[in-house]
Design a protein around this nucleic acid. Structure first.
Lengths: 314, 314
DNA sequence: TATAATGGTGACAGATTCTGTCATGAACTC
DNA sequence: GAGTTCATGACAGAATCTGTCACCATTATA
């Protein structure tokens, strides 16, 4: 086998089994250990972070972060990826820590000069805007980890209504919307799924009390929309086409929104009575683009709110 | 020079000069043409899309999209990049056409099995949400191209106030905000910078009338905030901390917003008299989180609007 | 402390691969 | 037809790579 091929395969092998001994590889590839040692040194020079320990139970390890087999992108793909990662800079917190920055940098540095020029030319011409907020969410990584591996966390949560509380939660997913990170999780305190704002989770650590994790099974991202209303109240409204447009921006509405061929639409859903003040404000914002049909309580709330505001501005 | 190194450099060289002859490379690398031919064949096998033509003025070309030198990412970087690109799927139009999808696919396919598993595990657990809108913007690519290369475009623009009109514009930048694409451009019709909604640009093609492009020089992304008010009116308001939070989400406000240490803030800016109805609605939305100080006209407008709504809900 | 396991390095001959040369051919331009 | 350029095969010589061996260093364990 030509050396070049062997090196490629060696890189893959080494990445798969992150711990190995020289002799193993020598057998596997049918070459001498000396050759493998030479090859490993070349891999090192090529950037694979190898680390070795001598003595019994020693051996090689791919240290820290292993390097994946190199991928060749076309120019167009590379540019698209660059801007995708570039767009992430708007987020003040990410579940991936600094990696996206280093990826961006690596990307940029590996480009031949002219592609780099092209990127530079575009950098100030394209942007994906995401609202930025102060709210740092330091615990995104642990939340994500818990969601993926189905672990229970103990968290300190500072809710708007109830002040700070300790609870055990099992995260289902995390998502960024409108500049803030949210986490849908099963809350063992409330015994149900709840959505938490990640920047309000003050502390999070893996639970040690031995709470049995739930099998969330197919419960996944779509769960974020779920929040069974307590004291459900039926809400019905008609929307003009531009009312529909404005509602489409609101994620929490997406599930309840029906859109017709002509662009107009309707909302028909159960909502929690406690949320009525919130909806009041929302429908005021919609102005003439919505015709509210029920509930009466919401109309009341809207009227009260309007009178209040009118008084403020008198 | 060892063959492996030569191949690397050959790939770079070939990517830089996208057209070349075997003899050239042979001279450059100090090897025979036969060797270069053999090497080029290997590059082909490695995926570099080479194409050759025989005869005078023939030679090699890197066909279609050239392939960039392979980049090795760490696992963490790769995951971060994957999700960055993954997030782009929310956009119904992109200035890069299908490339991001193919990049994503390539990424996914090149991962060793376990990393792929990890990505699969995370796929339903993390998301970057962007509001989706129907508004397709088919002309993003040409707009971007014009912005980068300072070209003048003829466009058909369907504005809300004035109906459809033909105009020549010179794009400065394009940006996505809240699910819609916008383009800041110098408008030769209005003789000033304007912001266009890209989905309302019905047709765009390079201008052939010979309009001289402007030297936009350092005019860049920041331009998108500029829109000198006609008939300026001073607007002043105080904001509570949560009022500030809500204003920060609004891009067009960012420039006018002053934030204090304690989280509260203020707006003090000139606005166009024509925009008063818009601001009225906005301040109604802010409710108690804002105290409007002037102008009186805006207060009037708000009062009118409130009474109107109140009547609707009576 | 001795022993065995493991990595690290240098030297060198022999094996293997790579390279240059030459020959031949095919396609294309002018 | 002459000249240019890519394409391919063969083969000997050059260059590189590989295996072997000798020796060292470190560490865990008996």
């Amino acid at each position: 086998m030509p050396k070049s091929k062997r090196l490629m395969e060696l890189m893959m092998t080494v990445n798969r089994k992150r711990r190995f001994k020289v002799q193993e590889l020598a057998d596997e590839f049918g070459v001498s250990t000396r050759t493998i040692l030479r090859d490993l040194q070349e891999l090192s020079e090529l950037g694979v972070p190898l680390y070795s320990e001598v003595g019994p139970h020693g051996g090689y390890q791919v240290v820290r972060e292993r390097v994946l087999p190199p991928i060749a992108f076309t120019e167009e793909e590379a540019v698209a990826m660059f801007f995708a990662v570039h767009a992430l800079r708007h987020y003040s917190s990410l579940p991936f820590e600094a990696e996206s920055a280093s990826a961006l940098n690596k990307f940029y540095l590996h480009m031949p000069g002219d592609v780099r020029d092209r990127i530079d030319g575009m950098k100030n011409r394209v942007d994906f805007i995401t609202p930025t907020r102060r709210g740092d969410a330091p615990c995104l990584a642990i939340l994500l980890d818990a969601a993926v591996h189905r672990k229970v966390l103990s968290v300190e949560y500072e809710s708007t209504e109830e002040g700070t509380s300790s609870r055990r939660i099992q995260p289902v997913c995390i998502y960024a919307n409108n500049g803030l990170w949210y986490c849908t999780a099963y809350c063992f305190l409330r015994e149900g799924y709840r959505v938490f704002r990640c920047d309000r989770i003050r502390e999070a650590e893996f639970d040690v009390s031995g709470t049995e994790p739930l099998d969330l099974g197919d419960v996944n991202l779509s769960r974020r929309e779920v929040a069974e209303p307590r004291e459900p109240v039926r809400l019905r409204a008609e929307l003009s086409p531009s009312g529909v447009q404005r509602c489409e921006v609101e994620l929490w509405l997406a599930r309840m929104l029906q859109v017709r061929e002509d662009g107009s639409g309707a909302i028909d859903t159960d909502v929690s009575r406690a949320d009525i003040p919130f909806y009041a404000e929302f429908f005021i914002g919609l102005g003439n683009e919505a015709v509210l049909e029920e509930p009466e309580e919401l109309k009341d709330s809207i009227r009260r709110r309007l009178s209040e505001l009118l008084a403020r501005y008198q």
